[in-house]
């Protein structure tokens, strides 16, 4: 079965799993019918938890999903679906209160039954989860602390909601609902156990050693690693991995970085990391011989899965890292298909891989179009941002048959994607990776 067919099957399964508990509500025998708002409230409750519960899956880095769907899409999906799920779940009590204001007494934690207390606490936890996730940086919460709290609150809230549902026991009395929600709880728990226990154990068995840390232009550092006592990971050019350094794989301090080395070099892997604060600032302090862990490989941002007569790479700043990996791999494979690389940077001094790109142009069919926001005085190249005009000027007549890979911050990806659509590039030929996913 092709990857596309598998992806479609997973999407169909997702829709089915989400709709199942709501569709099953139609399935009798039923308790006696109640007023409209109360029934609508119950249905929203089921719909909300179905969406919220499934959130344990996309972030568990399950290999069979990561192989089919880009990880940043899985995360974007997680963010959007969680908010949608919470909104539906919140509509459940709100409709209940609106339909029958007497039910407001359930909010009084001192006198309310435990099934109501559990729901109220779960809603408070969900609100805290959303606030700390959406505004983590504004609230200055450290990434690893946020991850720990996010995990703990999510598990607690899911448990409390399940307790609430089983204790209310209205539509939950139906055997389908009991089996569905019990099975769901087991699946959610397995996803958490996989990412928090199984995966770290696997990483401990496959350590890497730091070979060197080399400074690059644009406040970036290239970290070279060699597998320690195992064959290493065979990544595809353009993929990324989560890096764990100076801590245990069981900690919450792992960070995703793209490989910058050639996928043909099996014995040594390299990451190029821009210094942005938090973990990235410690990369330069790593010493040769130090032990690190690499959770990978992930991502579908690679040319092997998207055969084309030629490629267009578009990067903003450090988004060039996976593209360098693709270019170096093509060079090592003596792949002579033409590549045009549009590379946007603030200024000439900060262009990471400037020299590497110069030498790559002589080793393969590569044309690099530098686009600078603040060009030096004698600059003859492109200036400003990567726009439809700049793309149009450099792309050939066969442009609709080529594949396009864009990596950079989200606003840059959106702008370039729009520009490509303006130039009649088919949507299916555009591949994106944003580096601010989690």
């Amino acid at each position: 079965m092709s990857d596309l067919a598998k992806a479609k099957l997973w999407i169909a399964l997702f829709v089915l799993v989400i709709l199942a508990p709501v569709l099953a509500l139609f399935w009798g025998p039923h308790p006696e019918g109640r007023e409209f708002w109360r029934e609508l409230s119950a249905a929203y409750g089921f719909a909300g938890l179905a969406l919220i519960g499934i959130q344990f899956i996309p972030t568990a880095r399950l290999p069979f999903l990561a192989q089919l769907f880009p990880m940043d899409t899985l995360y974007a999906f997680h963010h959007k679906i969680s908010i949608a799920g919470f909104t539906l779940a919140l509509a459940h009590p709100l409709l209940l209160f609106a339909g029958n204001p007497y039910t407001l007494r359930l909010l009084n934690l001192a006198t309310a039954p435990w099934r109501a207390r559990a729901a109220v606490i779960a809603v408070i936890l969900f609100i805290l989860i959303i606030i700390t996730s959406v505004w983590r940086k504004d609230l200055r919460i450290r990434y690893e602390n946020w991850r720990a709290v996010h995990d703990l609150f999510s598990i607690a809230a899911a448990g409390l909601v399940l307790y609430h549902m089983f204790m209310v026991n209205h539509y939950m009395a139906h055997p389908f609902q009991r089996v569905y929600w019990s099975t769901s709880a087991v699946v959610w728990a397995l996803a958490v156990i996989y990412i928090r226990v199984v995966r770290p154990i696997q990483l401990l068995q496959r350590p890497y050693r730091v070979v060197s840390v080399q400074a690059e232009r644009g406040e970036a550092w290239t970290l070279s690693l060699e597998p320690d006592g195992h064959p290493g990971c065979h990544f595809m050019a353009g993929q990324f991995a989560w890096l764990v350094a100076r801590t245990s794989p069981f900690s919450f301090r792992d960070n995703p970085f793209s490989f910058s080395s050639s996928a043909e070099n099996k014995n040594r892997i390299e990451f190029t990391i821009k210094e942005l604060g938090d973990f990235t600032a410690t990369v330069k302090e790593l010493q040769a011989g130090e032990r690190v862990y690499v959770d990978g490989c992930y991502g579908t941002f690679d040319i092997d899965q998207h055969d084309a007569p030629g490629y267009v790479m578009i990067a903003g700043g450090i988004g060039s890292v996976p593209i360098l990996s693709i270019l170096r791999t093509m060079r090592d494979r003596k792949d002579n298909r033409p590549v045009i690389f549009f590379y946007g940077n603030p200024d000439w001094e900060q262009v990471t891989f400037r020299k590497d790109l110069d030498s790559l142009t002589s080793q393969m069919d590569l044309k690099v179009v530098h686009v600078l926001e603040q060009p030096p005085d004698n600059w003859r190249g492109e200036t400003g941002f990567i726009t439809a005009e700049i793309l149009d000027k450099h792309l050939g007549v066969d442009r609709a048959n080529w594949h396009y890979f864009i990596c950079g911050p989200i606003p840059m990806i959106s702008a370039v994607e729009k520009a490509l659509l303006q130039l009649d590039i088919p949507l299916v030929k555009i591949h994106t990776e944003n580096y601010e996913m989690a």
Binding site: L23, Y44, L427, I430, T432
Partner: peptide, 30 residues
Amino acid sequence: MQDIYARNLLIITVGLLLLFAFLFAILRSI
């Protein structure tokens, strides 16, 4: 590209959920 697909899937899924929930509530309350 993937974001557009993800957004469409979200709209369809949530739309169906809202629709079925509404239908259910009508059927049960009449």
